[in-house]
């Protein structure tokens, strides 16, 4: 049980860590000052969630590996984040679309994890849910503003949706880790989340005058460590300091 739970918590922690790192790339490059601040604030929340989750994962693993070692000293195949979160930022519209698709999933997942039989996981969900609601409000408002905006903004954000849609099936990926944890009431059944996610996403996309692509080919692999080419580049930046100056702290 604790091995499955370690794996599960690592997956959630890696989602937060990798997306937090991606969003932090906007620091100093936001399209307007307010959004520069918003994306980096959201990045900060996500890195905070990653810290709590990876500390818990390190504890569950029981091998004296610290949260920092988990964050900075694994190789790409050992990261278990969703493919969606490692995708490149692209323009602001693509970043917002990626964020929206993820926030909607995260909010629904944390709501369900509030009643997890694992008390610590429930506590992390309780803390993170409040922040995630804010993120979702921010990202969904921008999706609507850009989708239902000018011809240019509509076209760009529609292109982003077309490109990112193929990574959304993986949000509901399940394997033996999930089966084991579902059995003991630690995590919810993803089908509960999937229906609500579809409804929420369809509502916002409709408001934004956006349509989901016809091509429904879906990728997965992130949850078992098979990543897109983008993760390696991200890790080389993220891990640089720890690799160049082992055990450094600040």
């Amino acid at each position: 049980m604790s091995k499955a739970l370690f794996e599960y918590v690592l997956r959630l922690g890696d989602d937060s860590l990798i997306l937090g790192q991606r969003l932090s790339e906007w620091c100093g490059h936001g399209p307007i000052l307010e959004e520069d601040i918003a994306t980096t604030n959201i990045a900060l929340d996500l890195i905070g969630q990653a810290t709590t989750l990876l500390e818990y994962a390190a504890h569950l693993e029981g091998k004296k590996r610290s949260a920092d070692e988990l964050a900075f000293l694994r190789i790409d195949r050992e990261y278990k984040n969703l493919l969606l979160v490692e995708q490149e930022n692209g323009d602001f519209g693509k970043t917002i679309m990626r964020q929206f698709l993820f926030d909607a999933y995260r909010k629904l997942l944390f709501e369900k994890l509030l009643s997890s039989s694992d008390e610590h996981l429930a506590a992390i969900a309780e803390k993170s849910l409040k922040e995630t609601k804010y993120h979702l409000k921010h990202s969904s408002e921008w999706v609507i503003r850009l989708g239902d905006g000018t011809e240019e903004s509509h076209e760009r954000v529609q292109d982003s949706l077309n490109e990112l849609w193929r990574y959304t099936g993986e949000l509901f990926f399940e394997d033996e880790v999930d089966t084991e944890l579902k059995g003991s009431g630690v995590i919810p059944d993803v089908s509960d989340i999937q229906d609500k996610w579809n409804e929420l996403v369809m509502n916002v996309l409709a408001e934004a005058t956006l349509t989901i692509p016809n091509d429904n080919w879906q990728f997965d692999g992130g949850r078992v460590g098979k990543h897109s080419e983008h993760l390696g580049y991200l890790l080389s930046v993220m891990q640089y300091m720890q690799r160049a100056y082992p055990n450094m702290e600040w």
Partner: peptide
């Protein structure tokens, strides 16, 4: 002006 300000 913005949902996010000088701190979280």
């Amino acid at each position: 002006i913005s949902q996010f300000g000088s701190t979280a």
